[in-house]
């Protein structure tokens, strides 16, 4: 579903104006630096539930905004 993300400067704008940015989160259990690099480069948490993510308002004010979203419903909580 196409999201509407609220920008602090531009107000609510549709997702087509934004670039999605994932917050990478390598688990603490990975201590080997090679394994850490592989995980950082390719692996994802892909959670079913709340996720914190960054969106870049490319076709607007060109600022990053961090939101919390529920991946089960696409509801934006903050």
């Amino acid at each position: 579903m196409s999201l509407r993300i609220t920008c602090p400067t531009c107000g609510p704008r549709s997702a087509e104006e934004w670039i999605h940015g994932e917050m990478f989160d390598v688990p603490d259990s990975i201590t080997n630096t090679d394994e850490w690099d592989v995980d950082r480069g390719f692996f994802h948490n892909n959670p079913e539930g709340l996720v914190q993510e960054a969106w870049f308002h490319l076709y607007g004010c060109r600022r990053w905004v961090v939101i919390t979203r529920d991946t089960r419903t696409d509801e934006i909580l903050s």
């Binding site: 196409s2 999201l3 994802h44 089960r72």
Partner: peptide, 15 residues
């Protein structure tokens, strides 16, 4: 493909 990872199966008008 929607840009954001999501398990939602809602369709939209933009598409």
């Amino acid at each position: 493909i929607d840009p954001q990872p999501s398990y939602s199966r809602r369709s939209d008008h933009h598409f």
